[in-house]
Design a protein around this nucleic acid. Structure first.
Lengths: 289, 289
DNA sequence: CAAACCTGTATTATGGATCATACAGGTTCC
DNA sequence: GGAACCTGTATGATCCATAATACAGGTTTG
């Protein structure tokens, strides 16, 4: 019996340290354990620890000072974008931040059985499939794959999809949308999503799968979204609704009441180093929401 | 110049194929390229391809048929548990499935800065920290870390925490809880969570961070939950609420309309096949909700 | 200054991942 | 039946990640 394939130890340690940094367990400026300590702690050699630290340093997450130690880079305070339940980036628009959309793929295909079933299609019926990447201030944070029944997709062009929200185009075609279901989950980044989101393969991603229905019950849009957890997360306020013995929470509708001065609300608006990172030519169309 | 640490080739191919499957590019039932084809396509040896397929097979994503090919498994064996937004496993109770709780750790510590801030504590103030694992039908699916201010934690014992929901104990101490905030995100499994959830380090996890407040605004509970994405996911129904031009969704309150026969909370007390799966000695206390 | 840390660098040894190749046996299709 | 696929299995060679160890040089602290 061969032992199961297991990730490189260096990569494992890199991921663990990276997680402790981005989750705030190791706050900016903190000095992390010395290389010998990390080596014994994880039962690996010091060489392996160094390779993990090499990756963190290359990524700009830590800074090494010979003779002194390795420290969490402080200027890396990019707090994740916060979206409410309806997946609306209300804060962003208020703050004048720009979101761009890059259309990576566009075409008509025969969908997988699962997607066909969720949209209520006949076997063999085709759908329009598109892959888009959404960026905020030039940084990618979501990787969207959408499937729309062909008869709806044909009512708009590729250029229109790149420029306007998909749901708007669907409704423009005369379709009414009144309800949807969605599921939130987690997965690992595949090669395509990793490349689009500027991540390494195997990074964790937050996923959202949403199916939009028209009143008759037919599905009109299947959305599969993958988010960088360090740049995007779902947030909601809850209120107690259960009676007496029942302990239950329900989402508080309306605008989230930004909790007093909880530090999660501090969103840096300016990021002055604009223009340094020219986006690839390609198709980049500015789009609201 | 040392070459950068790069993931095992087998793992990379595993992730690549996995991505093509979950995104629907390779629909259930489809036969994926032969091992020699995959080997040349990715410029690796056939042995390496086989190791990638081994992982997919062990995960239940593909099925191999000697002489015929490797096929995407049609029926996802285990369907994840579905929880609604309030994190209530309503379905489970309906179905008479049992959830157990295992208390892994219990003690009083000085919390990290982030947790102290979220609970509104003074520097140096101590909290009660507990780590629990929740199981369904004997299989672990969530890893919970809770922090509670010391003055509340002292009102109940370790045994009580293992037997009763934490929120109930908090309220029993005289504290009122009326609102909470929570964030959903994704991360990678660390050593502790991986061991508790029977996963490999580096597996993706769905996380929920919830802070419960009393009316005065002080935090009374900090909950950090990590879920196995293959056994747990958040699900919600949405309805259109935006006016005219605004495309907006709001969570539909009330019971999810997924299963028509959603009876009111029938709580099955018995678990007929008891005694068959003897949980490890340790402390395992049955607990409702 | 000196002791005790730290990172940076180099060495050799070893085991595991990978490669290239070959063959056995089942399935598909003509 | 037979050709052309496929997966399953075995082999030995090679390469690379890792381990173990040692030493150099900077930083911190008393």
């Amino acid at each position: 019996m061969k032992s199961a394939v297991e990730p490189l130890k260096a990569r494992r340690i890199y991921l663990l340290l990276r997680d402790r940094i981005v989750t705030g367990e190791l706050p900016p400026g903190a000095r992390l354990p010395g290389e010998p300590a990390l080596a014994t702690e994880h039962a690996v050699s010091r060489v392996t620890v160094r390779r993990a630290l090499d990756l963190l340093e290359k990524e700009g997450l830590v800074q090494r000072k010979p003779g002194s130690g390795t420290f969490v880079h402080d200027t890396r305070a990019v707090r994740p974008i916060v979206a409410d339940l309806s997946n609306v980036l209300s804060h962003l628009i208020d703050m004048g931040r720009s979101t761009d959309v890059r259309l990576l793929s566009f075409g008509y295909v025969v969908p997988s059985e699962a997607i066909a079933a969720s949209l209520g299609l006949q076997p063999g019926e085709r759908v329009q499939r598109s892959v888009r990447v959404r960026l905020i201030d030039g940084e990618p944070f979501s990787y969207l794959t959408t499937h729309v029944p062909e008869w709806i997709g044909l009512t708009y062009s590729e250029a229109e999809l790149a420029a306007r929200p998909l749901l708007e185009l669907i409704e423009r075609s005369g379709v009414e949308t009144d309800r949807a279901t969605q599921a939130i989950n987690a997965t690992l980044a595949g090669p395509d999503a990793a490349a689009a989101l500027d991540l390494e393969i195997g990074s964790p991603l937050l996923t959202l799968t949403r199916i939009v229905y028209e009143p008759s019950g037919r599905g009109v849009e299947h959305l599969h979204a993958q988010y960088r957890p360090d740049r995007y997360s779902f947030h909601m306020d809850l209120v107690r609704t259960g009676n007496d013995g029942e302990r239950r929470w329900s989402p508080a509708l309306g605008r989230p009441r930004s909790s007093d001065k909880s530090k999660t609300d501090k969103i840096k608006t300016e990021k002055s180093k604009s223009g340094e990172k020219p986006t690839r030519a390609a198709r980049v169309i500015k789009q609201r929401s």
